[in-house]
Amino acid sequence: MSIEKGTLQIRNLSKSFTVDGNALQVLNNINLTFPAGSFISIVGSSGCGKTTLLRILLGLETNYEGDALLDGERIEGPGTNRGIVFQDHRLLPWLTVGENVAFGLDKQNRKAKKKIVDEHLKLVGLSGFESAYPAQLSGGMAQRVAIARALANKPEILLLDEPLGALDALTRMHMQKELERLWLLEKITMVMVTHDVDEAIYLSDIVVIMSSRPGIIKQIIKVPFPRPRDRASSEFSHIKAEILKEFHLGTEYPFAYAI
């Protein structure tokens, strides 16, 4: 049986941390399947385990119950088939932009490296910035470099942990467009954690809603609209209402909490 590259399957996944000698259950019995090439958003309140789930997929948390499978193989550690964009851009301040993008490319020779770096800086619209240092970049630019670095390794899936969380609203909407463009271009699976429901609907094929303590999957919502999506359309607000309802922020019981 062959599985298309970039397929993620999560089966009965649970994770707990030991805090002061007590087990803290963070994820409880998560089951999800992400088809190759889809864009998935995970939304949920702070502390519900979104980052932990991404870290498991990335291979930084290896001690978990159940299975997280990439292309049918259990994830046991980091690998170059997965790219990550952390919430903080996490560029190395002592490397130039170009060197940061090349950070994961050790096995190639210099010429091949330079070509990949150039391509990916162009991809994120930062050609000509390769010799700048991260401290010289704006937040949006730094996050683009981080995306270029993650994509330079040609991963099968790209994990994004609130990648646009630190940006102002306008830069953010611009970057959402960019992310969509990159996703359409690269045709890889992208899993993005976000707090922003609009962002999730705008970008995703599937929105996964989590709730906390311990983190469980509350709802999985498919977004079947064509792209690019219109944030002002009625279908958009319809889905948005459906998602917000899951957070008890729907409009059906506007006075429920006021009483």
Binding site: P93, W94, L95, A132, Y133, A135, Q136, L137, S138, G139
Partner: peptide, 14 residues
């Protein structure tokens, strides 16, 4: 050696 530390004031603002 630490040019990356001393270069922050030349570029775009945060």
């Amino acid at each position: 050696l630490l040019v990356w530390r001393f270069s922050s004031d030349q570029g775009a603002s945060k």
